[in-house]
């Protein structure tokens, strides 16, 4: 069963990290990714550029609209994701709780919709 872990973080706090803090955080994410891989749970995972770098696209009724990001004004923004493959929701929640993001931000666990089911 696949789940997406969506990582929401306060971008300002992230930008204001000093070199040491940034290094520590990167180390924590690397270790986390490695443990996901070693457990055979890792499918994919990437960090994202800040929300201000994004674009918002709508093509409702064939009227194409493009706006600058972020999508919603909020304190925390989507800053990265993991796609993991584990037994059930409790296992996914366990992994989410160990994610470095859960210490300072918010991790949302979403089951991947398996259309074949």
């Amino acid at each position: 069963m696949q789940y997406m872990l969506a990582l929401y973080e306060d971008e300002n706090a992230f930008m204001n990290l000093n070199e040491n803090e940034m290094g520590e955080l990167m180390g924590a994410y690397n270790a986390y990714t490695t443990s996901l891989q070693e457990a055979g749970a890792f499918v994919a995972g990437e960090p994202l550029e800040p929300s201000a770098t994004g674009a918002i696209i709508r093509n409702h009724a064939d009227k194409m609209q493009v706006q600058d990001g972020p999508f919603v004004e909020a304190k925390e923004h989507l800053g990265g994701f993991y796609l993991i493959d584990v037994l059930d929701l409790d296992a996914a929640i366990d992994w989410a709780a160990q994610c470095p993001c859960a210490k300072t931000g918010t991790v949302e666990v979403r089951p991947v919709w398996n259309i074949g089911d």
Partner: peptide, 10 residues
């Protein structure tokens, strides 16, 4: 069902 909440003793 969709989120596969497990039938287990925590």
């Amino acid at each position: 069902k969709a989120a596969q909440i497990p039938f287990t003793i925590p």
